[in-house]
Amino acid sequence: MQENLSNMIRVALIGSTGYTALEVARILLSHEKAELTIATSRSDEGKPLSEIHPSLAGRCDVALQPFDPKTIAENADVAMCCLPHGASAESVRDLALAGIRVIDFSADFRLSSVPLYEKWYGVTHPWPDRVGNVVYGMPEFFGDEIANADVVANPGCYPTSAIMPLAPLVKAGLIEADDIIVDSKSGVSGAGRSPKLGTLYCEANESIAAYAIASHRHGPEMQDLIHRIADKTVNVLFTPHLTPMDRGILSTIYARPVLQDNDTVESVSSRLMAQLRDTYRDHPFVHVVDHLPATKHVAMTNHVQMTVRVSGNEDQPGRVIIVCAIDNLSKGASGAAIQNMNVMFGIDQMTGL
């Protein structure tokens, strides 16, 4: 690896044609301590990045190159790997062995075991020795490990909207861990940039649809990470929905409270809100709010908004209802990656965000 003589963090973008890659490039344009120095594509070599993403015209004209770990390691300090599962793990392995730090956007290193990964993703893992040995890229819980990591597994978008409100409450024993329902709505960009029937305008506009009921790959990620953070086994029933908006995720989460003597709706609600506020007091991107969050409140930002309501009569608390809003392309993907990069290189995590 060539010595970096500048004060800027040099960033490589691996797999540059999707929405997450565009979002990384867009954020880096206003990042005062990092710059995009190399971008790769298997299908568009030689083209400027702005030809693939016209919104970057005149602002980011890095030419797309073939994937070569040695060249990337010589020209970058960190690689952001925006490839699909399976293919990503191979590239991450080659980059890490070439001596460059990597933030992986795929699910290849998020889960804690090879059998769990291969069950849900249906492929043989190309770097099984690192599964369970890669830090999960959520600085609110794993900041110290991220700071020293060679490889970081960037979180899934849906899991971020569920793990962040649920993990502190499960860990504190304030909600029952065996009966949690996560109902999530996502903008169409969550399905990626490749054309698909269900995301065509005539299919998605003026419609909302559930999909992958009881079979979405992000369900196991939610359970696995909440277990790792809270040290308790959880049972999450997850249902995703596609909504006709560009970006954003709103998750409405249902759980049963662990009640104390003489509990009321107000006392349960206050206890849960206090736990969330205490957990995130020193984390600038997470906001525990009194109002009901909406995707517009966090659009185009790396911020998270969450709140709690409790059903039932005044002296007979019922279900806990948690509402959490994030931007799926920012805190759910590229913004989180920039936040992780900032932590990895010891700068203020809000830089550029």
Rank of each mutant, 00 (worst) to 15 (best):
A73I: 03
C81F: 14
L116D: 02
T239Q: 06
N262S: 08
E221A: 00
T243G: 15
N262Q: 08
S112W: 10
E51H: 07
W120E: 01
F142C: 13
S50I: 03
T40Y: 15
I321K: 05
P240D: 13
Q260E: 11
L250E: 14
V78T: 10
L64W: 06
A34C: 10
I72V: 09
D178E: 02
L111T: 00
G122H: 02
G312C: 05
D231V: 07
P168D: 04
G18P: 04
Y158V: 10
I163M: 00
G18V: 14
H85R: 04
I226H: 13
C324W: 14
F141M: 01
N148Q: 08
A57I: 09
Q305D: 07
S6T: 01
F345E: 15
M80E: 08
K185R: 14
A107K: 13
V308K: 03
N75Q: 09
L237C: 11
R217P: 01
I253K: 11
V236C: 05
N148E: 14
S50V: 05
V265M: 15
V92R: 04
M300Y: 07
S41R: 08
H31N: 03
G198P: 00
V304M: 07
I321E: 12
L200C: 10
E32N: 07
A96Q: 12
T351V: 06
V92A: 14
